[in-house]
Design a protein around this nucleic acid. Sequence first.
DNA 1: CAGGATCCGATCGGATACTG
DNA 2: CAGTATCCGATCGGATCCTG
Lengths: 139, 139
Amino acid sequence: MKVSEEYQPLSLPEKCEETPLRRAIHLLGDTWVLLIVMNLLQGSMRFNALRTKLGHISSKTLSSRLKLLEQLGFVQRLAFLEIPPRVEYHLTAQGRELGDVIAAIEQFGNKHLSDSVVATTREACPVTVEENAAVENVR
Amino acid sequence: MKVSEEYQPLSLPEKCEETPLRRAIHLLGDTWVLLIVMNLLQGSMRFNALRTKLGHISSKTLSSRLKLLEQLGFVQRLAFLEIPPRVEYHLTAQGRELGDVIAAIEQFGNKHLSDSVVATTREACPVTVEENAAVENVR
DNA sequence: CAGGATCCGATCGGATACTG
DNA sequence: CAGTATCCGATCGGATCCTG
């Protein structure tokens, strides 16, 4: 049995975590993290409630993400001394600030990703190039 | 030789793409996409320039992401009829709007992910729970 | 109910080689 | 230079079983 080698669910090619921005992108560059935070923004939730709401996430994945978020101080884990056990997760003040990011994403999504995925909304801006002619759609 | 089975670099468990927000999260839930857009926000770039700036991304990965972004209408591909070939990528108006999202992420990163990853900044808010006592750090 | 341990398949992405 | 094709290993995440 391995001695639990610290979870590191989010992997990036290599040494990309030097800057806060990279770290942020790294963290948010994970579907589950975003989705989890989204749900927690609406109030604290229990493990299985989250699990259900997220649809099809394995307990393994969910718990790893929650653990990560907890370590980073964005999520607070609250274990009740009951039987059966009850554990509630809720965002910390810091975590709630992720709301801004999510709001931005949501806004963006609504504006540019509504249904027409490969939208016909491609703009036809007059391309001005020096010297040579440039072409689109030429591979 | 397979007949190019449509790139779909970003995978999500299953049918999660029903809503614009999910789609957005799905799209932005990718390190490279974010990173690429970041760089393009500062002006158009050529393929290899991007590649270099991103550090260690394979041409395969880079081109798949660019293709995706192009399909979605966020990036414009400009091929010059020269030899050696020159191709420039730049954001469309839509793509530039991703700047908002990135800004939000950057701000968040700077605020909460600067160096002290597992910050000691954990808040000690007084937890008020009904009936039972709740505990932290109890697994 | 909350979650850890294991097994294991899917896939993503890097390295390399090749082309126009 | 700007890619594409192929091979292939790393890993991520789902399913299952099990415990406190």
